[in-house]
Write a protein that binds this DNA or RNA. Structure first.
Length: 489
RNA sequence: GCCGCCUUAGCUCAGUUGGUUAGAGCGCUAGAUUGUGGAUCUAGAGGUCCUCGGUUCGAGCCCGAGAGGUGGUACCA
């Protein structure tokens, strides 16, 4: 060894390691959600993890700093590339690139890892998995309704019980109509109003009122500058956000009183009415998908309907503190994204599942189906001279569809049993010299032993008893192991 | 980005007014038990006391700066 400083064994912040149990849970969610997407007639599309930065560029938070928000690197030819931060921007690029040859409307789904170079927080990572479905090339509100219905079905397929989640729908056009109504014309002020409206569920009407006016001082001591609206304008905004609750038709009727009459407001109302009709005919209930005027979503590219999925589960963390899960999915209509490449306006709408967050939510809610990852049957490496016997036994088990492995360490029998225990193995196969000479095999049922061990206090007795241990003719290895594995499954 | 708190073994943490070789519990590796998981006992491995600078005869401890972590907040395509 040299004197070079040893590296610290740690994952970069915001990146998590997942073990078998979590991997299995996420895979299952992905498979179930993708099956729903395919049933709705969406085709799979996979694109690379890197895109040229200019293909992502316009909607970065700050176009002057290409490394902010995304992980970027420079290629040999000095072009900037960046890891994708979502699956929508790559879709827009793909559609623009292959527009001539695609069936239109183009319906595609995609799953994959995305990366965001920002400060991680509770339930917020710099690398996570998304699962998207989008329809490109249809301006019909029914395209939005279909996406919403499919999202609702996707959550059910992932294992969320009815009532545990809801989809909240709004329209950017309504929000724009609201701006007209409240007399907000300056662009910066519009953004401030939208951000304030978006916080209704967390801060309540009073907190939003402060943000619409001068600003708000939060409990950490940080001050958020407000939108600077006059009192009357602020109340108009608040009456808009208060219009939620009840059936979709009821909310629409209330909203018509606030934003009806402005061109954009009327357009938004018509869109949402069409979505409501389609949802109703597809059997999506009022308690599952509702119109919620305070939903805003991101500020950059949405142009029409927006949707957000929220969890209604209440849960606590290890310390007993209530856990707040952010949205577990969302989407909306983005009619200008493809036009960046082609100059031609192409309407599009889509939804994205936050798979990692959904898996965490299911785990916290105790609804995880892949409760634990069982280990393989362990063939004990008893004697160097008989290694061939062990590999032959493992091969027989594998051929019969039973996960099996030969212990590959050099420890004695006791550590090997500990190893099998820790792997949650269903059984250990013991082929010592005695067994081989007698044409037998000893099989230890580890699940049964785990149960019996709780009643034993004396180690000598525990060892003498050899709980859960059976002998069988060597020729019946597979049948005997199968009986034990299936009993424990 | 802004505000607060924190940083000593793999984990959770002690560490006296600044004093010699920095500790505990858990975990890990093994032995007791020559072929058996739990419990018990025993032994062992494991440390740039976050980093740099300063004060001091002497710093894990005091001072300054920085880094990292964490919790809010901002932002969240």
């Amino acid at each position: 060894m040299t004197d070079a400083p040893r590296p610290e064994a740690r994952a970069p912040r915001g990146f998590v390691d997942r073990r078998a149990r979590d991997v299995a849970a996420e895979r299952r969610i992905l498979a179930d959600v993708c099956a729903v997407y395919e049933r709705y007639g969406f085709e799979a599309l996979d694109t690379g993890a890197l895109e040229y930065a200019d293909a992502l560029g316009k909607f970065l938070p700050d176009a002057d700093r290409p490394n902010e928000g995304v992980f970027a690197l420079q290629d040999d030819d000095e072009q900037w590339m960046a890891l994708r931060y979502d699956l929508t921007a790559p879709l827009a690029r793909f559609v623009a690139q292959h527009w001539e040859s695609l069936p239109k409307p183009f319906r595609r789904y995609a799953t994959g890892t995305v990366w965001r170079n920002e400060k991680p927080g509770p339930g917020r990572f710099r690398e996570f998995t998304q699962c998207d479905a989008d329809t490109v090339g249809s301006a019909r509100p029914e395209a939005d309704a279909e996406i919403i219905a499919m999202a609702a079905e996707g959550f059910a397929a992932a294992g969320l019980p009815a009532g545990a989640y809801s989809l909240k729908i709004n329209s950017r056009k309504l929000l724009n109509g609201l701006m007209t109504r409240a007399g907000v014309t300056v662009e910066g002020q519009k953004l401030a109003v939208l951000r304030a409206v978006d916080k209704l569920d967390r801060l309540g009407p009073d907190g939003v009122r402060l943000l619409l006016g001068e600003g708000r001082l939060d409990e950490s001591g940080a001050f958020t500058k407000g939108a600077g609206l006059a009192a009357a304008a602020a109340e108009a905004v608040l009456s808009f956000t208060a219009a939620g609750g009840g059936s979709r038709a009821e909310v629409l009727s209330r909203l018509a009183d606030v934003v009806g009459g402005s061109a954009e407001g009327d357009e938004g109302l018509a869109d949402l009415a069409a979505i409501d009709m389609a949802l109703t005919r597809m059997g999506v209930g009022e308690d599952l998908a509702m119109i919620e005027p305070s939903v805003v979503r991101g500020l950059e590219y949405y142009t029409g309907a927006v949707y957000e999925a929220e969890l209604n589960l209440s849960m606590t963390d290890d310390a007993g503190q209530p856990v707040r899960f952010g949205s577990v999915g969302g989407g909306g209509r983005y009619d200008d994204l493809v036009a960046r490449f082609t100059g031609q306006p192409v309407p599009a709408t889509g939804f994205s599942f936050g798979v990692s967050r959904l898996a965490a939510a299911l785990r916290a809610a105790g609804r995880e189906t892949a409760a634990r990852a069982r280990g393989p049957v362990v063939v004990i490496a008893f004697d160097q001279a008989h290694m061939g016997e062990y590999f032959a036994a493992a091969a027989e088990l594998r051929a019969a569809g039973i996960a099996a492995e030969v212990y590959l360490g050099s420890s004695g029998m006791r550590p090997q049993m500990k190893y099998a225990d820790r792997r949650l193995s269903p059984a250990a196969v013991i082929l010592g010299g005695d067994e081989i000479a007698a044409g037998l095999v000893t099989i230890k049922d580890l699940d049964l032993g785990r149960q019996l061990s709780s009643g034993v206090t004396d180690n000598a007795a525990w060892r003498a008893e050899r709980p859960g241990q059976v002998q069988a003719p060597r020729a019946q290895l597979v049948a005997a192991v199968r009986a034990i594995v299936e009993a424990g499954a």
